[in-house]
Design a protein around this nucleic acid. Structure first.
Length: 97
DNA sequence: CATCTGACATAAT
DNA sequence: GATTATGCCAGAT
């Protein structure tokens, strides 16, 4: 992974306001040469204990990505006021432009 | 070097 | 909506 790209991804991540979420694709589109998979990889490679809001990144279908920390992610988002409907999806109002 | 895999997206069905 | 198929790209094997 190119250091510059990861830096862009992390910078964008840090800009997401509390109570809002964004998708892998949107982050990828804001970077140069970024793809959703690279964004996913960048997050996966983050060391545990960092201070970035990794939990504010969801999939394009507005659901949580399938990974081990999904439960914690859901809890953190709910704690911030993000709402999940009966289908486990996040309403579009929470999306960060 | 050839394959497989996955914190994904998109289009078709 | 849910599933399936494809494209994508970096790591691991």
């Amino acid at each position: 992974m190119k250091p510059a790209l990861r830096e862009q991804i992390l910078t964008i991540l840090a800009e997401i306001p509390a109570g809002r979420v964004t998708t892998y694709g949107r982050i990828a589109a804001m970077t140069e040469g970024g793809t959703p998979r690279l964004v996913a990889r960048a997050l996966r490679d983050l060391p545990a204990g960092h201070d970035l809001p990794w939990f504010r990144v969801i999939t394009a279908s507005r659901r949580l990505a399938d990974h081990g920390g999904a439960d914690e992610q859901r809890q953190r988002l709910v704690a911030e006021g993000v709402i999940f409907d009966a289908l486990g999806r996040v309403p579009a109002e929470h999306l960060w432009p």
